[in-house]
Amino acid sequence: MPHTSGPDEDDDLDRVPAPKPVHYAEQALLGALLLEPARLADTEPLIAHHFDSHTHGALFTAIRTLPPPDPADHAEDTVWLNAVLNHTRPHAPGLSASYLHALIQFCPQPKHAAAYARMIRADNARRVLRAHAERLASTATDPGLPNPVTSTLGMADDISRVLEALAEQFAPHPGSFPCTPLPAEGPRQANEEDLDEERLLLATATAYPAEVQQMRWLTEADFVLPLHATLWQSITALVHRGDMVDPVTVLGEAQHRGLLTDSLAPKDLMALVSTPAGSPEYWGEKILQRALLSRAQTVAARIAAYTDDPANTPHQLITGSRRALADLNTLRTRFNGATTPALQPPRKPPARAAPPPRATSPPHLLAPPTSQARR
């Protein structure tokens, strides 16, 4: 009995994604070159790697490799087309002679070959930039790297070099900043060790305020927990004003900043800044490193969002990506200021015989308030 599709069944062809615009540009260009091989000179600096389709790239390589035919002979026979087909088939076994003829029929205007080539290079630029953004995000979240900051900044430098190369290929134009809606930045996630490091910084900064004077490279935005960020503001405000710094004076400054609530009593706040271990610079570097890696993930997400928006031209991708990298470079500058040997002596990790008492902060204040993972 023949099968009859029901009203809820879709034809298989309906589920095949529609070809992207670059697919038609590749077909049009190849059709132009097969019809008029002399148009190859109009495609520079296009290479096979720029094609989205492997078969199209292999066919383009064959066209570039084989000597062009005599125009008069090419108009009378298919010798050169057959040679192109035979050269391509080892690399694209599914290619047929009928497809080559279909490409020729598909090309609207062979004299527009240069425009088709620009479309192909533009789409390749989008894919290359997207792949680099993915590698940046992967590196910034790789727990197995011995030096994650160096590796992450190296990936960011790779993106900068890609953008420089693309800027030489695509001319700028007015209104070149992308209008792509960027992904919202959610609360940063942190484990208990991350929060311990922030607490230890606050306690050691309170115990050794003279060292805080040299830590202008650390800002409240680098902290995961808003409570800790505001406490850091309180401590640094006292230090930069030249006031006395101890748990009681930090309590007074925190009170002026509205930190004391029903869930955070004065004795809890003073306990939070009363268990020093090691040096403020050591813990500050750890916090800044974590902030830098988090920013790298944000930058990668922004660049990926630009590349996912088909409305963006190559120059808009370049401009938006450079702006995103500038945010990461701001943290790079601060991290270099904190870790450059000429500015700061090497610091050894302190002995951590025991973590600070858990009772120093109410449990619900030890994680970002909007974090879903800790509910």
Rank of each mutant, 00 (worst) to 15 (best):
S98F: 08
S5L: 15
L293Y: 00
A122N: 02
L81V: 12
R15Q: 13
V239H: 06
E198D: 07
E198L: 03
I159Q: 01
L288S: 03
R332Y: 10
V84G: 02
L66I: 11
L231G: 01
A72K: 14
V162E: 11
A184I: 10
D123N: 15
H132P: 01
I63T: 00
L136E: 01
R121P: 02
P363G: 12
Q344R: 15
A171M: 11
S274W: 00
D12E: 15
L325S: 05
A291K: 02
K348M: 14
V84L: 03
L129E: 02
T298L: 13
P17Q: 07
M270E: 15
A254E: 06
S294I: 02
W217V: 03
D327G: 05
S279M: 10
H228C: 06
P350D: 07
K20N: 08
E9H: 08
Q372I: 10
R347V: 15
R375I: 08
T370Q: 15
S151D: 14
A291H: 07
R121D: 05
S321P: 02
A131K: 12
L264F: 04
D52M: 09
L200I: 08
A326W: 00
A41W: 01
P19I: 04
R39V: 02
F177M: 12
I159G: 00
P37W: 04
L103K: 01
A254Q: 06
N124Q: 11
T139K: 01
V16G: 06
N329W: 03
A137K: 10
S151R: 13
A58P: 00
Y99P: 00
L29K: 05
Q255P: 00
Q344Y: 03
H132R: 12
C107H: 02
N82S: 10
Y306W: 08
E36L: 11
L202E: 04
V239N: 04
K111A: 15
P172N: 09
L29M: 12
L33Q: 04
D123C: 04
I104Q: 14
A62Y: 02
T55N: 06
D12A: 13
L227I: 14
A237E: 13
S138F: 08
I318L: 09
D222G: 05
A131F: 01
L227R: 07
L59C: 05
A58Q: 14
H50Y: 04
R374M: 09
R130G: 07
P355L: 13
L85E: 05
P349R: 12
H173E: 12
L200C: 12
P45G: 14
T236E: 13
E164H: 14
V250S: 09
L202H: 06
A207W: 08
D10L: 15
A18H: 11
P280F: 06
